[in-house]
Design a protein around this nucleic acid. Structure first.
Length: 613
DNA sequence: ATGCACCCTG
DNA sequence: CAGGGTGCAT
């Protein structure tokens, strides 16, 4: 059920998930440097020649792309270990690390023994790439004649031994654990992953530190700060490769900060993706999964999200589509009183019920707000102004409708465009991996688009469902007040931008409506219609067809008779104005608007809780 | 000065 | 459908 929100997690066993959770924590937490040795000791105890972290297990997962094994996750813990090991500032050992060094050296000696025993059996046969890596490294060493200079290992592990290469291989695995996981989350294409891996093999910066056992010939080894340390070179490189790497101008070496940045970026990407998954999951879990559209009326609806309504009510198998039939049949609505209790924000006062005439004097939609609401809006406006603009918008919750056009531009685009959250940017590719192809603007009524559309409503944006709902509401109200908008778009986090966008929607609706009216009126005048009463608007009329096509394209909504009446009045008003030549006045439409705005009806209660799909 | 609605444009 | 310009009302 929540699987769609996390395609990575869903494939994992509970044990694996636990490890992953631990793993992800460890990516950001710091453990003591001795953990590595402790871990190695554990491996020493439990590892068979083919089973330990230095054996084929980790390498296999990197090679064949299989999911990380628990061992891999442990090794990731290793990677994520102590600051001196991972922190970019600590790659060269610091004097403060010296107290640990003696212990590390002792541990290292033990590890070397383990590795020495394992190297012959584990690394020689399993993976071509590793074998080739060993051979290549050895060739490179031979070519440089460096190997001849080495007097073998005496307490200090040389960089060309299979042990070192094993460690190198392991460290490469360490580094790429988060990358691999990020790739599994859909964040990194396979090619990029492979390319990145290749680059890692090939682009060995000359200054890349390797002191997991120091080469006596290495200049790094000559660094007193690096002698005998367990410095992990960010899992990037083998020690030997750096000796023979040729750096060209076209292939500049990655400097250490770049590597650190790359690793941190990987970790950041992974954590970000995980955070998104967790957030989505938490929302999915917090909603009443099988609740029908009638929602929690006792709750504050402003600021809440719409997931509970559309996501699982639209096409839930086996559930009656009561919402749809209700929306389609105003007659049925009027005959059967709604079972839904009115929203606390929809006060069924007499003053409100006839707001179209009593509260709209002056043709100002904002006058639809009752006194308390106006005060609240003004208070919030003050808050807004003091809060300093767009970045504080979401803190205002039910802010007023007094749109600040300039300040809202960016977020308005966000809301209607990518629907990107203001709280965090969600990679569309990642969301796509969760729920399939995205197309927020698509007019498709498919369940998937509905799902995605409403998933995006999490981010406070208006969706195509909201647009469709607004269009249907237009059949009842051409001039909705802010209060009406907030009441009927309860699932939207109302900001100035959202309010402005909704108002703009209705403005556009009106524009189309009046254009059609004017066109028909002029046509009637041109055709010599004798008087206004000869003009009617029926469901078969061309005018109604045009309007219905615009606001009710699928014709799955039964347009209320009242709308036909209003349309007829509007048409006659335009006819009279045109026939009397009032259209020569630049503002000749305004008197008509003033008439029409008084003809608004109350939007049925069902629109509060039901969603067109 | 501010907010809103209309108008035009893309 | 949205952005920008404009005019009007407050």
């Amino acid at each position: 059920m929540h699987a769609s929100s996390n395609t990575y997690v869903e494939r994992r066993s509970p044990e694996h998930l636990r490890l992953l959770k631990h793993d992800s924590r460890s990516l950001c937490t710091i453990t003591d440097g001795l953990d590595i040795a402790v871990l190695l000791n554990k491996d020493e105890i439990r590892s068979s020649p083919l089973g330990g972290p230095y054996s084929t297990g980790s390498s296999r997962t990197e090679l064949d792309g299989a999911d990380p094994t628990p061992q891999d996750l442990n090794t990731l813990d290793l990677l994520s270990g102590p600051p001196p090991l991972l922190s970019p500032t600590a790659v060269p050992c610091r004097p403060t690390d010296w107290p640990l060094r003696n212990i590390r050296q002792a541990k290292r000696a033990r590890v070397e023994n383990i590795i020495r025993d394992m190297a012959g059996s584990s690394f020689s046969s399993s993976h071509e790439h590793f074998t080739e890596d060993v051979q290549e490294d050895k060739r490179e060493w031979s070519q440089d004649g460096i190997q001849a200079q080495r007097g073998g290992r005496s307490g200090v592990v040389g960089c060309t031994t299979s042990e070192d290469l094993a460690i190198k291989n392991q460290l490469q695995n360490f580094k790429y654990q988060p990358v691999r996981k990020f790739r599994l989350l859909g964040g990194l294409p396979q090619e990029e992953w492979a390319r990145d891996s290749d680059e890692t093999k090939e682009e060995t910066p000359l200054e890349e530190t390797c002191s997991f056992g120091s080469d006596s010939t290495s200049k790094d080894h000559n660094d007193p700060n690096c002698s005998g340390g367990f410095e992990i070179p960010l899992g990037r490189k083998a020690c030997g490769r750096k000796k023979v790497r040729v750096t060209t101008a076209a292939n500049p070496p990655k400097r250490k900060p770049d590597l650190v940045n790359a690793l941190m970026a990987d970790i950041l990407k992974y954590e970000l993706s995980r955070a998104v998954s967790v957030s989505v999951d938490s929302i999915f879990k917090s909603m009443p999964l099988l609740e029908p559209p009638p929602r929690r009326h006792g709750e504050e609806h402003l600021g809440r999200r719409s997931l509970s309504v559309p996501l699982f009510s639209v096409r839930h198998p086996g559930r009656p589509q009561a919402r749809r039939t209700s929306l389609r049949s105003p007659q049925a609505r009027s005959n059967a009183p709604s079972l839904l209790r009115p929203s606390p924000h929809h006060h069924p006062k007499p003053g409100f019920s006839c707001h179209c005439t009593e509260l709209r004097s002056g043709d100002r939609a904002s006058k639809g707000l009752e006194g308390g609401a106006v005060d609240q809006v003004r208070c919030l406006k003050k808050t807004w102004e003091f809060a300093g603009g767009a970045l504080k918008q979401e803190t205002l919750g039910a802010s007023g409708n007094s749109g600040s056009k300039v300040r809202c531009k960016v977020n308005s685009r966000l809301a209607r465009g990518s629907q990107t959250s203001r709280h965090f940017a969600v990679d569309p590719a990642f969301l796509e991996s969760l729920c399939g192809p995205l197309d927020v603007k698509a007019q498709s009524d498919g369940p998937q688009s509905t799902l995605m559309s409403n998933l995006f409503s999490l981010n406070d944006g208006l969706t195509t469902s909201h647009l469709k709902k607004a269009k249907l509401m237009f059949f009842y109200t051409r001039y909705p007040s802010s209060l009406v908008l907030k009441t009927f778009f309860y699932d939207v986090q109302f900001t100035r931008c959202i309010t402005s966008q909704l108002i703009k929607w209705f403005s556009n609706f009106r524009e189309f409506y009046y254009i059609q009216m004017e066109k028909q009126a002029r046509q009637a005048v041109a055709e010599g219609v004798p008087h206004a009463r000869a003009l009617t608007v029926g469901r078969e009329s061309e005018l109604f067809r045009a309007l219905n096509m615009h606001y009710n394209k699928a014709s799955d909504f039964q347009v209320p008779e009242r709308f036909l009446e209003v349309a007829e009045v509007t048409l006659r008003e335009f006819y009279v104005a045109v026939s009397l030549g009032r259209d020569s006045d630049p503002s000749w439409k305004k008197p008509i608007y003033k008439v029409i705005c008084k003809l608004d009806s109350n939007v049925p209660e069902e629109f509060k809780t039901q969603y067109p799909d």
